[in-house]
Structures are given as C-alpha cells and as structure tokens.
C-alpha cells in the first residue's frame, strides 16, 4: 500500500487571510498528499498537538499579520519539547526577507513568500521530508 505524505496546514495567529493556505492545501491534495486543515486562529500548542495526533510529516503555516517571528519559533520549540524531530516545518505569508535567517535558525526549514508557485512548495516537501 502506498505511503501518503500527510501535511498539517494551519494558520497561527489571528489574521483571517486564508486564501494562500487554502490554495496550497488544494495543490497538495492534487499532488496526492493528505492535508489536515485546521483553519484559522490556531495557537502553537494546538498546531503541535494536532500534528502529533495526526502523525503529520509536514507542518505548513501561513501568517500575513506580521506575528511570524513570535509564533513560528513557538511551534518548533514545542515540537522539540515533545521530542519530535522528524517533522518538516514550513512557513509562508507576508514575511520580510530580513526575517528569514532568524526563522531558519529557529528550525523553520523554508519560508515561502508571496508569489511562490505551489509547485515549488510541493517539490520542496518531496525533496526534504525528514522521514521516508
């Protein structure tokens, strides 16, 4: 039986702009992945617990409000606290390029800014999964 890539798509923080999150969810599905969509206003705690219960291979988050430097690192910290080291964590949204090195240092594997083709995200996931 084929192993499916499972991706948790979440919007941490309070912004309600989920167009990007929904487009990427759909693109991942159309690429054959299983997408767990948790929607708006997710706390880092909810995202991490959901990812563990869902045994997600990937957590993909999007923020447009500017709260990324606060919220993305909280997710990777919580994962580390729970001893989870094999989940690929991705960020997207309106994120200034200056912030990307900081986020990568905090364990966000890649940050996809406005205008990123969905194909690029899909290829990145397929090439960088932390488990086979």
């Amino acid at each position: 039986m084929e192993k499916k890539i499972r991706v948790l798509v979440a919007k941490p923080g309070l912004d309600g702009h989920d167009r990007g999150a929904k487009v990427i969810a759909r693109a991942l599905r159309d690429d054959g992945m299983e997408v767990i969509y948790t929607g708006l206003r997710q706390t880092p705690e909810q995202i991490v617990d959901a990812a563990i219960q869902e045994d997600a291979d990937v957590i993909a988050m999007s923020i447009l409000s500017g709260a990324h430097n606060h919220l993305f690192p909280r997710v990777t910290e919580l994962l580390a606290d729970k001893g989870v080291d094999d989940v690929l964590v991705l960020g997207g949204g309106v994120i200034p390029e200056d912030d990307i090195p900081f986020l990568k240092g905090k364990g966000i594997a890649a940050v996809f800014g406005p205008g990123t083709p969905t194909k690029a995200t899909i290829e990145f996931i397929r090439a960088n999964l932390k488990r086979s």
Binding site: G13, L14, A67, N69, H70
Partner: peptide
C-alpha cells in the same frame, strides 16, 4: 489590529505577537 478586530484585549493569550501589528 487583529486582537481589536476579534474583540480581545491586548493581554489575551491569543493576542501575543499581534498587538499593534496590522
């Protein structure tokens, strides 16, 4: 800002990182 738009005060847990942002 988003906490105001969703009816949370600035000290609400969900407001963290969002106060005064947008």
């Amino acid at each position: 800002d988003l906490p105001t738009q969703i009816g949370y005060d600035s000290d609400h847990p969900l407001s963290q990182g969002e106060v005064g942002k947008v």
